[in-house]
Design a protein around this nucleic acid. Structure first.
Length: 451
RNA sequence: GCCGCGGUCGCCUAGCCUGGUUAGGGCGGAGGGUUGCUAACCCUCUGGGGGAAACCCCACGUGGGUUCAAAUCCCACCCGCGGCGCCA
């Protein structure tokens, strides 16, 4: 890309509001690196020739003369090696700092507020007090909604009323942004996980539980360094990091491998806890379980041929859409703009659920096509058949199916009944039937049974 | 955690003790030849990088070291297997 199509890289940099000159500098270092590498190879060749000769020489004076020659060459080689290494490092540092090339359908913009809504679903319940705020967010789109007079409780008020979320004791034990989830909400979480895995496995996804920790090297392949330092927990005294999502260990699974074309696309449905530092989010969503350091998530992940990835991107979005329609929660899809896209993705959709208690659409799903950004760094390629030379880098895609803490938040805010209970979405009920102590239709405060 | 053994070009394997022609062989795969067709057989290719090409360099788990020269000798680490210890 750097050599064949620098113009495209520059255009992408410009659209992201970054400096296109970085591309030129990278090209310069690449050129220098190549030139010096050729010189180095010539020197090494000369050295190899002498070295081979020494092995054959019997005469000791001639022999020691040759050894001196070889030694002299070694000094030059060492110096040149350092130079080559330096140029390569300079080039790679620049190259790795360049974010993924944005797709042409990504809107230009600076931040969250420039994301473009492309789809609405459901009939949001809007409290009169949030009506102006709501209308602003739907941006003149003609959508059906219902005005309610009573203010819906936020999910943390609801969790507190039900007595099924305990963030106070969690902060005593683990700090802020942790939680104890109890009883019916644990059942609800398990049902959500089973619902997502059931759906995806029927769609041909391979369900998978990955390692919850990984080494630094593979980790740097799947994410940008800035995300890495801000978001990821390290295990003390070990080269191990807690995963921020199962996307990461699944992507790294095929590191340094060549996948036969016939096996692609490979669809995985990962289930794992996710650990995130949430550094730099001070003051945001401090109450409840919307933004936390640890949650469980079912994730869609796909390795594909480059020519198929845009079609698969829509497929992943569609799966998320169907899952959330199934839950009966109103939402919108936004096409995430260049300023909010992140380094790894070429294009990203967010699915934002309507939260009646907050009067806002909030992100519950993020669906990205990372094209060859991860596969290049992880060296994951494809070939016609096993054993044949690789033809190129695969594309990787990922999308949330269901992140439990956010899905529970959405359910707590959207399914409130008049009498202070939570109705359980119908699609989840069959996953609760089996268990005598699991809630069936409603989750109610302990002192007010409803079933 | 300790002790022992091992890791070679997609897979299997030789080479390591005793440093020195080009890491040899088998399997699998791709292309071609022969053939009425298939099988068998024969030839070429089958790790990464630089180069328009000829060609050259790098690669024997990873990283260092010794040496003119390391798959081979030394050190550290990683992974696997076996034994001991510990343990949900």
């Amino acid at each position: 890309m750097l050599r064949n199509n620098p113009g495209k890289l520059k255009e992408s940099q410009r659209r992201r509001g970054l400096d296109p000159k970085i591309v030129d500098r990278a090209r310069l270092y690449d050129e220098l690196w190549r030139r010096k590498l050729s010189e180095l190879n010539e020197l090494r060749h000369a050295h190899n020739v002498i070295t081979r000769e020494i092995g054959r020489i019997k005469d000791s004076t001639l022999r020691s003369k040759r050894i001196e020659e070889a030694k002299a060459l070694l000094h030059k080689i060492k110096a040149l090696e350092d130079e080559v290494e330096r140029y390569k490092a300079l080039r790679d540092k620049l190259l790795l700092s360049i974010p993924n090339v944005v797709h042409e359908t990504v809107p230009e913009g600076e931040g969250e507020e420039d994301n473009v809504p492309v789809y609405f679903y459901g009939k949001p319940k809007v409290w009169r007090g949030y009506l102006d705020k709501f209308l602003l967010q739907v941006n003149e789109a003609n959508i059906d909604y219902e005005v309610v007079e009573r203010r819906p409780l936020s999910h943390y008020e609801m969790g507190y009323t039900l007595g099924l979320i305990d963030t106070e004791r969690a902060s005593k034990v683990a700090g802020s942004r942790f939680y104890y989830l109890l009883e019916d909400l644990v059942w609800l979480e398990l049902a959500l996980i089973l619902y997502a895995l059931d759906y995806l496995s029927r769609k041909g996804f391979i369900i998978i539980e990955p390692p919850f920790m990984m080494r630094r090297r593979p980790y740097e392949g799947v994410t940008s360094l800035s995300d890495f330092e801000d978001a990821i927990y390290k295990v003390e005294d070990e080269d191990l990091y807690l995963i921020a999502t199962s996307e990461h260990p699944i992507a790294a699974m095929y590191m340094n491998e060549v996948i036969p074309k016939g096996e692609l696309p490979l669809r995985y449905a990962g289930i794992s806890p996710c650990f995130r530092k949430e550094a730099g989010a001070h003051g945001k969503d401090t109450k409840g379980i919307f933004r936390v350091h640890q949650f469980n998530k079912v994730e869609q992940f796909v390795f594909s041929l480059p020519e198929d990835s845009w079609k698969l991107h829509e497929e992943l979005l569609n799966n998320a859409v169907e899952l959330w329609k199934g839950l009966g929660i109103p939402f919108r899809i936004v096409n995430v703009c260049t300023g909010d896209l992140g380094v790894v993705a070429a294009k990203k959709y967010d699915l934002e659920a309507w939260m009646p208690g907050q009067g806002r659409f909030r992100e519950v799903v993020s669906c990205s096509n990372c094209t060859d950004y991860q596969s290049y760094r992880l060296n994951i390629r494809y070939a016609k058949a096993r054993g044949l030379p690789a033809e190129g880098y695969v594309h990787t895609l990922n999308s949330t199916a269901i992140a439990t803490s956010r899905a529970i938040t959405a359910i707590l805010e959207n399914y409130q009944t008049e009498d202070g209970c939570i109705e359980i979405p119908r699609v989840l009920r069959k996953y609760l039937e089996l268990f005598p102590k699991a809630p069936k239709e409603y989750i109610c405060p302990k002192d007010r049974g409803k079933e």
